[in-house]
Every structure is written in C-alpha cells, then in structure tokens.
C-alpha cells in the first residue's frame, strides 16, 4: 500500500496527515500518533524490557517526531523513518543514563567463543514447535540488555546488520556476534523454561 493512499483515519491519508503535521497541525499529529503508537511503543518495550522506560521513550520519540517532521522528505516510508528515529532515541537515552542498561563490555567485547554446543539427546531436544509467543517474549525480556537490543532490531524488527552497526556505533561483525549470542542465550532460556515446566508436571 503506498503512503499516498494509505488511510490512517476516515478521509485522511498518511501523506495528508504528514503534510498537515509539518505545518504544525496538532490534530494531524494526533492522527499520526494514534496510528503509529503501538509499533513504536512495542519497539521501545522490547528494547528496554521495562514498561515505564518504554513509555518515556515513546513520548520522547513522538516529541522528536513533532520537532523533526518538517525534515521528512519521503525518501523512505514514513513508518521506517519514524521507527529509526525511535531506535535512535532509545539508544541515545540508554547511553545518557550512563549505560547501566547496556554494559559496554557486553556490547563491545570481542567475540569469545564458548566452544561447540553439545546436546545430549539432541534430536529429542530441539525447540521446534514448543515455543509460544508468551514464552518467547518473556525470554527476550530476560536477555541481557545488549543482546536484547541487537536481537530485537535484527530478528523482530528486521534491520540489517549494517544498519544496526551504524545505529549502535559498532562493527558489522560485532552486530553478528551479538545476535548469535543472543539467539544462543534465548535457546538456553527457552530450554530451561521447558525443563522447569516438565519438572513441575
């Protein structure tokens, strides 16, 4: 669906709302907020794992949007542009807070391999088919912050490693290794949960 035609409200296309918001029309801005709030909030929530922070960052992202919408030239889809802005807000704010949320070690430490993974009875033990959304969401929330951010950006939001590297100021190789570690960690967490569940039965 093209932006020009996408209706975000009765009789209001996204393109019209953007143009009106550029000239300071608060109602058009409200329509844009209403249409995009869930995606932006979910993104912030997954990146931070914390509802209060996610609300603050959503607010910051839309404040930025209001200030910067005049610079939107339509080179990319509006939603892509807005989400990128939200990601930058989250990363900037987390850095500002002195990075208790993202440990620099964790973010930038060179890759240390843990050696090959060996599973006893690996065949019976694969995850396929056993993970539901709730479990996965919880496991993501339990990831260390650096892993969580890279995983959310790449696997949930669909950013490429070069984009993540640029946004986070790290190398592409670093983004790839963080993602890999995040997935391995999730695998451990999900198996742990499954085992616990089985023990309780």
């Amino acid at each position: 669906m093209t932006q020009a035609k996408k209706l975000i409200a009765p009789g209001l296309t996204e393109a019209e709302a953007i143009e009106r918001a550029k000239s300071g029309d608060a109602e058009a801005f409200e329509a844009l907020y209403a249409f995009h709030k869930r995606r932006v909030y979910s993104l912030c929530l997954r990146m931070t794992g914390n509802t209060a922070q996610a609300e603050d960052f959503t607010q910051d992202a839309f404040m930025q949007l209001y200030r910067k919408i005049g610079t939107f030239r339509g080179e990319s889809a509006f939603s892509t542009w807005l989400h990128r802005m939200a990601v930058n807000v989250v990363l900037m704010q987390l850095r500002k807070k002195g990075l208790p949320e993202i440990s620099l070690d964790e973010m930038l430490e060179p890759l240390h391999e843990d050696g090959p993974r060996r599973d006893i009875g690996a065949r019976d033990n694969v995850l396929a088919g056993s993970v539901d959304r709730v479990n996965l969401e919880r496991a993501i929330a339990d990831l260390p912050p650096g892993y969580r951010i890279v995983f959310t950006l790449h696997d949930v939001e669909g950013y490429e490693h070069n984009e993540i590297a640029e946004m986070m100021g790290c190398s592409i190789g670093n983004s790839k290794s963080q993602l890999h570690k995040a997935r391995l960690k999730l695998r451990d967490l999900l198996k742990l949960r499954r085992a616990e569940k089985a023990n309780r039965r």
């Binding site: 070690d105 964790e106 430490e109 240390h112 843990d114 260390p144 616990e196």
Partner: peptide, 20 residues
C-alpha cells in the same frame, strides 16, 4: 575463565535461581 565467561555463568545461575 575469562571475565566474560564468568559473567555469563553467574548470570545463568542468578537467572535460574530467579526463575525457580
């Protein structure tokens, strides 16, 4: 065990304890 490994191991222990 380097620092990273230690941290990861402690994390897993702490997390397991929390979950359990």
């Amino acid at each position: 065990m380097n620092r990273h490994h230690l941290k990861t191991a402690l994390g897993v222990v702490a997390l397991s304890a929390t979950l359990l």
